[in-house]
Every structure is written in C-alpha cells, then in structure tokens.
Design a protein around this nucleic acid. Structure first.
Length: 727
RNA sequence: GCGCGAUUAGCUCAGUUGGUAGAGCAAUCCGUUUACACCGGAAAGGUCGCAAGUUCGAGUCUUGCAUCGCGCACCA
C-alpha cells in the first residue's frame, strides 16, 4: 500500500512549542487591531449597537517589573475581556501605569545613593529628570511583560497617572473640591515619616510589634505611666477620668506644682472621659504635638500645644540639656536623670504596636503640621447635602456596586464609617504639584497658574491615590466630554487585589460619586495574593519568587495562565508552584495532539455547520458536550473562572481525548460510512468548540490551533463567537 | 479588643437550595510500531479540625471550642 502524506500542517507533527509561537501570535493580534473596540466595529466583528463592556487595568507602579501577582491580575482580567469580546460586547480594556509617587521616589533615591548622590544636592528639577528616566524604563519593561502574558488590551488608549491629560483631570478635581470647601489647609496632627521626610496618610501606616519598657513616673501627687519619657518635657496637663473616685479631690482646672525632669513646673488638672481608668494608674500627662489622642484632648479643652521633637526626630530646646539628641539616645539618659531625682517608681516590660511607614519602615512621629486635607464629613450642596462618607457608602449599600466576594462589603463599610479626613499633601517631589499658589497672604487655587507675577506654587505634591482615584474616568478623557467617556463609563467591572480596597477602590468611589454623581464601576472583583507552594508570601529574602517571565519562557504563557487561574476563587489567596505550571504545559501539548489526531483521521472531510445526519450515539455526545458548554458559560458569567477552566480542561482531556477519541478509532477506521461521517463531523465540530471555549484561558495555543483547522471564515479566534449562548 | 477567612486524600483545591465524598499533582503497579511518554490503563489513598444540636438524613444548616492566617483599632 502506498503511504500517503497526511494533509495537515507539518507544524502539528512535532510537539507544541510555545516559545516560537507566542510572540508571533501576539503580533498577529496587534496587527488585527481587534484589541480596540472601534476597529472591531469598523471591521464588522462587533455590532455597532453592541452593549459596552469596559474595564481599566489597575495601573502597575513604575517601580520596576511585574511580579506573579500582577500576572494573576492580568490573566483574570484578560479572561473576562476575551470572554466578553467573544460574546459580542463592545469590549474595552484600558491600560496604564501609576507614577506611585512615594514608592518611585524612594526607589530612585536608593539608586542615586549608591552613586554617592543625594536628591537635595541635585535639586528638584535634576532629580525629577532622573525619576522620569527610571519611570520610563520601568514602564517599558512592564508593557513588554503585559504583552508576554497575552493581555488583549487596547494599547491605543494607554494612560499614565502623571501624564499631561491626567494632570488636567487632577487639577480640575482639586479645584472643584477646593471651591466646594472639601479641600482645606490646616494645622492638624499628621503622620510624619522622619526618614521619608513627608507626611503619609493613615492607610500608609503599618503597625509593628515592639518590646519596650513601660515607666511609672512620679508626677507630683500622681503616678503616671508612659512608654515615651522623651516626650514628657512639656507635659503641663495631667488628665484623669471625671468619674475616677481615686482622684475626686482634684477638680478640673486646679493647678499644682510638681517637680519634673528639668525642674519645677505648674501642672493643670484636666478631666476627660476618654481616659481608661483601668489602664496604668488612670492618670496621664499629655503631649498634644506628638500624639493623636492627646491632640484630641487638647482640642476639646483648648490647651496649649508645644513641639518637643523636630522633623528629624531630634529633641528641641524645650528638652534643655537633652536638646539636639536623637529620641533613642535620649530615652535612657532621661530615665537616668529621673531616677537620680527619685521620680521613677517602677519599670515594667511592655509590648505594644508602633506605627511605621509602609515604604521607609521608619517609626512614625506624629506632628502638628500645616497640610492639605479632604473633609469627608462636610455636607455637599449639589449632592443632596450628603458627605463624601455618605457618597461612598450609598452605592454599595443600595447594590449599585457589588463587591465579590461579598464579605468585603462589610469590611468596606467598617473602613468608611471610621474614616477621618484624608491628608493629601506630601513633601516629596515626584507627583502632581498641588494647584495652589501663594503671594504674601493671598492664596489662589486654579486649574492654571495665575497670570500675574509674584505667585509661588505650593511645593508639595499630592498623595498618589488622589490621581488613582480618578482612574476610571480620567483615562476616558474626563474632564472633556468625550465619546469614550459617554460610552464606557461607569466601567463594567473593577478587578484588583483585596489589599488595596481602601487605598484605591474606596477612593475611586469617592471621586466618581463626588465629581460625576455616578458610580465608577458596577462590580468589584477582588483577587487574593499569590503565594508559594508552601503558602508563604513571595519575597526576595525568602528567595521563593516566581518570575512570571521566567516561567512563561520555560513552560509557555498559556501554562502559566492556567496555573494562576485554576483553584483560585475571588478573595482567596492562591498557591503557585512549578509543578502546577508543568501540568498545564502538558495540557497545551495534549490539545495539540488532539488536533493532530482529529485532523489526520478526518481527512477529506469538510466541517459542515449544517450537518445533521448524526448517529444516535453522536447525538448523545452532542447533548453532553453542549450541556458542558452551557455550564461553563454560566460559570464564566458568574466570574467562576476557576471552575469553568477546570471543567473545559476535564472535558478536553478526560472525556474527549481519553474516551471519545479512543472509541472513535474503530469507527473512523471502519466500513460504515454513515457512522464514519457522523463521528468525523462531531469531532471536528467539538474540536472547534473546545478550542474556542479555551481561548480566554489559553489564548496563544488556541489561536495557533485555530489557524490550523479547516474552516470557511478566516477570522482570528480572538473575535470568534463564544460557542454557547447566554445562560 | 472588634471583625473576617481557612481547616475535605501526602500536596493544592472542588463540592452550586442537606440525599452514600471528587479532580489535578505526587507516590505505587502495568503498558510503548501509528494522536500524544509533555502518554495510556489499573489500583491505592479521606471517622470532611473537635464537640453538641436541628433533621429520616449534615462536608453542607445552628451553637460552642481548637489551630492557623488576615484585616481594623490601639491606652498614655
């Protein structure tokens, strides 16, 4: 018998090779323009009146490269986007990056430090040039990584939180809030980072456990407790609870003379209900300049406030002989002196949590400073006199925004309800300059700088989350009334990590509700952290970091995508291992071989969508397959990608390959032409459907296979219709 | 302190209004001249954290407890 060369692409004869395929496929997609919804409509693959589906990419910080958590985010979003596009929606996924003010600036500071440079010697302009270069490099690396992962994102609309358009949005938003009296400048107690030399918000604080000493000191007739004797120099108020029977003989406002660190002082008795009678002796002295709680007491009773510690963490002249010393060094010396004066009653071991700065890890020193704040409690006239807090709560409470998993809704309420005014000014150089100018006593806030001479702009920049809060609409052209804004806002879904629900999700709701009177998105899908195989956080020090690019190179991006999605429900952390990736690399090859078998054993048969002469056995297989497709569609629509992905994997491998194909061998090699034709049509049809349903999960290998299977239309799989109807 | 989550096979996890426990990976045994060894087949592996309750029936619902993890707050 004469050997006949199979009439299939020779590519299929060797195992699937992702590395030689993926870049080529991505280029093909980009050339097609189909990532851009306008082009989809122009070329007729999306109906002109199709419903929009829009999502913004949570902009990665330009502080370096993407980690595996970013990869997971890209995969989840790309699955949503590809699924929506295949279902016929007018689908927009909008990319961008975040300037991440403090994070990026401190990164560059560290780099130039190694070169022996300091930012203050370079000057603001020179330093910012350097940061911009660094940001550009990071940006380029990030963009290429996003492409490697296969993200079907519309590059023609790319944005940056610090570019010119976003700057206009920021200034516009600031001005409106300023004019409405929501943004104000005032002397408040703030979180000062002595290392970063800037104020940070409450959310940028990380509490760390510290073992220290607790000192009981004699203060006139009282014993006071403190962990921070170095702040006690100026303490001239002694506070106790009004109901504390132990101190009934002292009346609010009484003064007593006490011998203190640097000599006698006159102390005033203050009665305040915030005092915990159970704690220590129930008596304390206060340091309003360096404690938020003490500040509150001082405000209530209109007490004097005095600064003890400067912005570098050194004691001021009020400390007398200790002036100029660092807190750490001063503490022991002060206790020594107090002991010599017989004022120390006892010292206990003490464990408490201290506030540190998220970025610099420095211990926060509360300070009273003149900073810019957003008032979250003030009623807003053109928002039915609701406050920002109320505007943030409303859409989640009434269901206009739903959060997945829904338990995070309660976390959100709890946070918003306890929210204090948001400190938005930062003493760093990299970021949006505050659009306020000063001339003597005059203040001017405007979108543009004042024309006249002699005005000087505020030197502070804005909290990076101020610009991120505008992201869902600043990226669509706001404040201009663009077509994009009208079409795609509010966005369909926001997909991000649960760790930034407060930083970002809440701020977007705030900004959108206030500036637009509308929600920024309808659904929030929160993903968890990607951990290592043992469930540990990935970190440099543990050496357990999995670089998405490395593993994508080794096993293919499709395999990495599958391993990031299977077993990962919303809100839960997931575990990642190379073994898991390897399993899905094998699956890509399995698909490859399934295709090879079906094509080579159905030679000469043209797939016919209208074919109906199926055998009863094949009819049953069709029913089974279509039910699975329907179930998968339902799970996709419920955002249960981990279930849908696994289901299609199971069907392709355990059912189609292991059972149906094996059973088909005798039929296809047999004499019964009726059964043969029927089975061949079934296999070709099922192959196409499986590949299509897998496309959101494994876009590269499926697109490649799509190009190899015989069919009439020549469209990319990217824009091919989803193989099951809406559930 | 307040709140949340997890606890199912060695590992990672499913288990959709309660109806006799599932998958992948790993490990074991068998199998290699036509789709695939990046494979196939077989067998093995669980008193579903513990205790009580509701029920004809609980991995699933209720309560309590334990362990692990997380978030928020923080007191001098």
């Amino acid at each position: 018998m004469e050997y006949k060369e199979p009439n299939i692409d020779p590519k299929l004869l060797s195992p699937y090779d992702p590395t030689s395929t993926e870049d080529r496929i991505y280029a093909l997609w980009q050339e097609s323009g189909f990532f851009n919804p306008d082009i989809c409509i122009e070329k007729g693959v999306t109906a002109p009146d199709a419903k929009p589906f829009s999502i913004v990419l949570p902009p990665p910080n330009v502080t370096g490269t993407l980690h595996i958590g970013h990869a997971a985010m890209l995969v989840i979003e790309d699955i949503m986007v590809r699924f929506a596009r295949m279902q016929g929606y007018r689908t927009l996924w909008l990319p961008g990056t975040d300037h991440a003010a403090i994070a990026t600036q401190s990164k560059v500071e560290k780099i130039i430090e190694k070169e022996g440079l300091r930012k203050n010697d370079m000057g603001r302009e020179e330093f910012l040039k350097r940061v911009t270069l660094f940001a550009q490099d990071s940006h380029d690396a990030i963009v290429s990584q996003i492409k490697k992962m296969g993200a079907s994102i519309d590059w023609s609309r790319e944005a940056f939180t610090l570019d010119e358009k976003r700057n206009v949005a920021v200034r516009t938003a600031f001005k409106k809030m300023y004019d409405d009296g929501l943004i104000y400048r005032g002397h408040r107690i703030v979180n000062w980072d002595p290392k970063g030399q800037t104020v940070i918000s409450d959310d940028e604080i990380v509490y760390k456990e510290e073992k220290t000493k607790f000192y009981y000191l004699k203060y006139g007739p009282f014993t006071i407790g403190t962990a921070r004797p170095e702040t006690k120099f100026g303490d001239k108020y002694v506070v106790m609870h009004p109901d504390d029977t132990r101190y009934m003989q002292y009346k609010h406002g009484d003064t007593i003379e006490v011998e203190w660190i640097n000599g006698p002082i006159s102390a005033t008795i203050i009665k305040d209900e915030s005092i915990d009678m159970e704690f220590g002796t129930g008596v304390m002295t206060i340091t309003p300049w360096h404690s938020a709680v003490d500040f509150g007491i001082a405000e209530r009773h209109k007490l004097d406030k005095e600064q003890i510690i400067d912005t570098y963490g050194k004691l001021l002249s009020i400390a007398g002989e200790f002036a100029g010393m660092k807190i750490k060094d001063a503490r022991a010396k002060i206790i020594e002196k107090l002991e010599s004066k017989g004022l120390v009653e006892k010292i206990e071991d003490y464990t408490h949590n201290i506030a540190t700065a998220e970025r610099t890890e420095a211990v926060i020193e509360p300070q009273i400073m003149n900073q810019w704040f957003i008032n979250v409690n003030k009623p807003i006239a053109d928002r039915e006199n609701k406050s920002l807090k109320e505007l943030m709560l409303e859409p989640v409470k009434n269901g206009n925004i739903s959060i997945l998993p829904d338990r995070f809704e309660r976390v959100y309420y709890n946070w918003v309800e306890n929210l204090r005014d948001w400190c938005i000014s930062r003493q760093i150089w990299y970021g949006h300059r505050i659009p306020v100018w000063y001339k003597g006593e005059e203040i001017y806030c405007g979108i543009e700088a004042p024309r006249e001479e002699g005005w000087e702009q505020d030197s502070d920049t804005l909290d990076t989350w101020f610009s991120s809060g505008l992201w869902t609409f600043s990226t669509l052209g706001w404040p201009e009334k663009t077509k994009d804004f009208e079409t795609y806002h509010p966005t369909t879904i926001l997909e991000t990590g649960y760790d930034i629900i407060f930083f970002w999700v809440a701020r977007m709701i705030l900004m959108s509700q206030y500036l637009l009177g509308d929600i920024p998105f309808k659904t929030v899908y929160l993903h968890g952290l990607v951990r290592d195989a043992q469930g540990r956080k990935m970190s440099k020090s543990l050496g357990n970091i999995i670089d998405p690019l490395d593993v994508a190179k080794k096993y293919g991006a499709d395999a990495v995508r599958m391993s990031l999605i299977i077993g990962t429900g919303p809100g839960n952390d997931s575990k990642m291992s190379e073994d898991k990736i390897k399993a899905y690399k094998n699956f890509a090859n399995k698909l490859w071989n399934i295709t090879r078998f079906i094509l080579s054993s159905t030679e000469g048969i043209i797939p016919d969508a209208k074919f109906s002469a199926y055998t009863d056995a094949d009819k049953a297989l069709i029913v089974e397959r279509d039910e699975i497709m329907k179930a998968i569609t339902k799970e996709m629509e419920e955002y249960k990608f981990y279930l849908a992905g696994d289901k299609i994997y199971q069907y392709a491998w355990a059912r189609l390959a292991d059972v149906i194909i094996e059973e088909s061998k005798p039929i296809l090699g047999g004499e019964d032409d009726y059964a043969k034709n029927s089975r061949a049509q079934f296999l070709l049809d099922t192959l196409a459907k499986v590949i299509t349903a897998l496309h959101p999960f494994m876009p590269f290998v499926t697109e490649e296979l799509w190009s190899l299977i015989p069919r009439k239309d020549k469209n990319l799989l990217l824009v091919t219709a989803w193989p099951a109807s809406h559930s």
